[in-house]
Amino acid sequence: MLSIAENSSSIKNSASKPNSFFGLLFKNRLAMIGLFFILFWTFVALFAPIIAPYSPTATNTAIKLEAPSAAHWMGTDNFGRDIFSRVIFGARISLWTGIIGVGISCCLGIPLGGIAGYYGGKLGNVIMRVMDTLLAFPSLILAMAIAASIGPGLISAMIAVGIVGIPEFARLMFGQTVSLREKEFVEAGRAIGVKDSVILRKHIFPNALAPLLVRATLGLGFAILTAASLSFLGLGVKPPTAEWGAMISEGREYIISGQWWIISFPGLAIVTSILGFNLLGDGLRDVLDPRIRTGK
């Protein structure tokens, strides 16, 4: 009797742990590497003032363009600013831009897609046609046009990145809502007189959360990349703010004369942060989408 109980409990444990969401995610090595990068940059961004040895904007032309050394681990730039400190503080700007950008995309895209999918008809059609038209623009070009229209700066880069991401979320939410609105639990809600807004918020949205979460994670990488590209082109943050894309832009004229460190470290920071979100996003998709899991 005891052995049967032991057996059943061990079967239960082995079945619940490795197949649970976190169990599967932790088993996915690439997703864990991604999570490591994300946690690393989040930690760096949060504790930037403690980690950075110098002020990110303090200039000292006496030590300009110095190669990496014990005093300046990643060297100095053309104004004698410590690149290590600038990379550390740059993490704050990049992560914030990504979070705010994706936040704008989610806050506008998800309700729009939900409304279009739930009500359908002319309203739904108009919303989705607008989304399709936005998708017709190459994303970086649209972001550039928006940032240029508002005027260069960090806020406009965030808005631009946010608007560019709206149609992706709207389309995803639209698809999810269309398939969920005919389900019995939604019909039951309607039958007992639950308001449409409540059905959308409390019944449809939670059930559409998994693919939205995957999209948001992948979107963060994309947002960081787009914002860095805007800064590189002069449409993002203004000097002397430490931002990775802007740092590479400032260092590009020194590459031919051999000062590789000015662009190398901010570049690696961008690559690792984007890679982090892409790997975690792919991992989440594998875990949350059973079709992909079984198909592997």
Binding site: G245, S249, G267
Partner: peptide, 12 residues
Amino acid sequence: GAAIPIFWLGLV
């Protein structure tokens, strides 16, 4: 390839 910014790759 999907994570490397084009402006950085060009300079490298």
